[in-house]
Write a protein that binds this DNA or RNA. Structure first.
Lengths: 150, 150
DNA sequence: ATACTTGCAAATGATTTGCACTTGC
DNA sequence: GCAAGTGCAAATCATTTGCAAGTAT
């Protein structure tokens, strides 16, 4: 699914004056592997530690901050107070949404941008120039609905 | 704009086995007064303290938690990591959205639900039963756009 | 050399909790 | 009267930061 490579990320970092250190590479490689999950910094840290045990949590945070600044990842604050990070697979006009199941806690991602029309309406009616958005739905996922019936 | 009264809130609390103490009343009255702002717990605390100086921040948090559990308020986590609370003016089918200006930080509220169609699409395509949602747009508000031109 | 990075530990900031005291019904 | 509620201070949890040491070019 992901068409981003480590090399893309290396060149983006270098363009901005950052190095792709082993720690950053390990962190990015977790994000590439798990690009359909929505990992918190802590979860990323635990996964990275398996490959590079000497890494510190602060480094993971710093890496994620840089990646987010460069728009290589996207940071979303969830209701539980944790921030989760997604690789920006489709750079540029990216936008995606989340389906958060209140029963099993799973977070599903939707790639399409369903809000084009809504954004146009906002700009016309409120004179507000939209740059980005976050949309999260809470509800019951398919699987949990089935479990309820059993 | 708000059609909720203290009495509505009192009866809701009592139905759920809670009392409307002076501290809770003071907190709710701030929310009623400022129902178009999006106040953080800290901001609410400061305002409440002016009328009831002996109140503690923990009580404000506990009150907001109860109100949110009873769906009398709605808690939204913003990008800055703070949670803000809105009174649920139109109980039941409530839904509203936020416009967050990245320049002046102001948070505007839109009452309409622009997502009816989007929700139907989600339910059909993903089998996900939507119960609630949060939608926040980041961008530049009208006023800041004008200031830029000057 | 020099500027960028790191790991660690300590600091921060929002929220939560334990507890002895108080209060509303 | 007594469970429910309070204020305070201490605890917690995610995240950030200071700093001395490490590293790449």
């Amino acid at each position: 699914m992901s068409n981003l490579t480590i090399e893309d990320i290396r060149s983006n970092l270098q363009k901005a004056g950052y190095k792709l250190t082993p720690q950053r590479e390990a962190t990015v490689s977790i994000l590439l592997d798990r690009d359909d999950e929505h990992l918190s910094a802590e979860e990323i840290y635990i996964l990275v530690k398996q490959k590079a045990p000497e890494i510190g949590l602060a480094t993971v945070y710093r890496t994620l901050e840089i990646l987010t600044d460069l728009h290589l990842t996207h940071k979303v604050v969830f209701e539980d107070g944790l921030s989760r990070y997604d690789l920006q697979k489709n750079r540029g006009h990216h936008f995606h949404h989340h389906l958060e199941c209140v029963e099993c806690g799973k977070i599903e991602e939707i790639e399409e941008d369903l809000l084009d029309e809504v954004e146009q309406e906002i700009e016309q009616r409120f004179g507000f120039l939209v740059q980005d958005h976050q949309l999260t739905f809470q509800g019951i996922c398919k699987k949990c609905q089935q479990n309820r019936k059993e």
